[in-house]
Simulated scan of single mutants.
Amino acid sequence: MKELFERLEILKSTDAITENAQIICHKTIDAYVSQTEAANYQMLITHLAMAVTRMERNEPLNAPPPSIMKEIYNSPNLEEAQRRVKWIEIECRITIPREEKEFLYMHFVAALTA
């Protein structure tokens, strides 16, 4: 997990992500990532930090390709991925647009499948 926190610190120190994005990622790591699973969550945490930053900076959002989402929506881990994204919204008092939710579903499904 140390690597995840270090990555966030680097992104924050270069102004690639906002302070709020860093805080949200820390909460998510604390809630869902164990030391043995940290490597599985690198893409998710990086994407979450960048997604929150894009939302806060009103930058354009893009959804993942429909072909990938078709596979994600058929995953047995989808329900858990959706539950975790909902937790992020509630816990961090943010509303995540559909485009970013889909990317987060994709990354959570990948992490849960690994």
Score class of each variant (00 low, 15 high):
A63V: 03
E80I: 11
Q82Y: 01
I24L: 05
A51H: 14
A21V: 08
Y41A: 03
R84K: 15
Y73C: 03
T53E: 07
I72F: 00
N40G: 10
A38M: 09
N58E: 15
V52H: 07
I29E: 00
R57P: 00
A49C: 11
V85L: 05
I23A: 05
Y32E: 07
R57I: 01
S34H: 05
S75D: 06
I68H: 09
T53L: 06
Y32I: 11
A81E: 06
E19W: 04
I23D: 05
M43D: 13
T18K: 02
L48Y: 12
V85C: 06
R84C: 01
K70H: 07
L61R: 10
V85Q: 04
P64N: 02
S67R: 06
E79R: 12
N40K: 15
Y73T: 10
L48S: 11
I29S: 02
M43Y: 12
E56G: 09
A39G: 11
S75Q: 07
Q35M: 11
S34P: 03
T53D: 11
K27C: 15
P65S: 13
Y73S: 02
P65K: 14
A81N: 04
Q82K: 15
H26Q: 15
M69F: 03
P60W: 00
Q22C: 13
P76N: 06
A31M: 13
P76Y: 05
R84D: 00
T53R: 06
M55C: 10
I24Q: 00
V52M: 13
P65T: 09
A21W: 10
L44T: 05
P64R: 01
T18E: 09
P66Y: 01
A31H: 10
V85M: 04
P64Y: 01
N40T: 08
C25G: 15
K86V: 01
Y32H: 14
L78H: 13
Y73F: 11
E79I: 03
Q22K: 14
I45M: 13
K86I: 00
Q35K: 14
T46Q: 07
Q35L: 13
C25D: 14
A63T: 11
N40M: 09
H47S: 10
C25I: 08
P60G: 06
T53F: 07
Y32T: 12
N74S: 12
K70N: 01
R83V: 08
Q82V: 02
A39W: 11
T18L: 04
P66L: 09
Y41P: 02
